Simulated scan of single mutants.
Amino acid sequence: MASDNDSTVKEFILLGLTQQPELQLPLFFLFLGVYVVSVLGNLGLIVLIVLNPHLHTPMYYFLFNLSLTDLCYSSVITPKMLVSFVTQNLISHAECMAQLFFFAFFVIDECFILTSMAYDRYVAICHPLLYKVTMSPQVCFVLMVGGYVMGFMGAIAHTICMLRVTFCDGNIINHYMCDIPPLLKLSCTSTSINELVVFIVVGVSVIVPSLTIFVSYTFILSNIFSMHSTKGRSKALSTCSSHMIAVSLFFGSSSFIYFKSSPAGSVDQDKISTVFYTVMVPMMNPFIYSLRNKDVKLALSRTLKKMVLT
């Protein structure tokens, strides 16, 4: 294991979410349950969308990609976090950089998927007659590919900048994952370039999507409240409410980490906030988009009936 003054750290120790022994086992079972629910929920939603032709629409195409992304990035983070509750959690330098890359890739991708979903709802409610033309399969595909490309570019930028950092202030990461802020605290070289990249990448990945979503929903709500039909207004609000909740939870918790000025004693607070958008949000999204969605409930009912009959 690398010593505190070794400039070529080969592995890190992840301290985990808490150092209180009496909380380790209860938290292990809690987050194991959360992870199982997250995997089953997102995988179930993916299967439902694939198996039911009436869900092969732009809205569910984006929801399919959202569930896939949630499934992937929760799997990048949660299993390693679970290890830290039961034993000393060692992670090699290469594994740490890989986790950082895939975490950044999927989180940035999710930002742009949520933005595409907001644009989809804007077109559906504000320009319903042009919906099929505007949200053609080609346009949906380009939006999704664009999101994945942005995720890849952001992840590459973060990872390359982190690879140039020399770690010589110890190898203990006060976190349950290889996130950028706790890693930079271990650096004994200048991190100004890393901080600039964080500012640019997070700015583009959070501010641009947030503004796009805000503008989209300004037009959407304006259009909804100008409707004369109470039934039509209620239906339009219902189709948008799930997405608005998901956007608020994800962007609210993730932006808190990267855009606040971090005082020295806020490490535990940062970890709790990170848990929310890396572990809890992927579990909650399938329920947010399913509980009030008649199409998903119908698809689930049909799929279960087919399974029983076969």
Rank of each mutant, 00 (worst) to 15 (best):
Y61N: 03
D109Q: 13
I49E: 05
L114M: 12
N89H: 13
N42G: 03
Y60C: 01
H93I: 03
V76W: 15
A118N: 12
L45Y: 05
C111R: 07
V76T: 08
Y73G: 01
L48T: 01
D109K: 07
M59T: 03
S38K: 03
Y119N: 07
L114P: 03
A104M: 08
S74V: 11
H93N: 13
S116F: 08
L45S: 00
F85W: 01
A118R: 07
A104E: 10
N65M: 07
L43Q: 02
D109N: 08
N65G: 06
T115N: 08
F101P: 02
Y119C: 12
F105W: 03
S84T: 09
L66V: 14
T57M: 03
C96D: 12
H54M: 05
T115R: 14
S84G: 13
F112K: 02
L63D: 09
L114E: 09
M59G: 01
F103P: 01
L51A: 02
Q99N: 10
V39M: 10
F102Y: 14
I49M: 09
M117E: 13
V47Q: 06
N65Q: 11
P53M: 11
V86R: 05
L114V: 12
F103L: 13
P58T: 13
F85D: 04
N89I: 14
P79G: 04
L40D: 04
H54N: 05
G44L: 15
L48V: 11
E110Y: 06
S67W: 14
L71C: 07
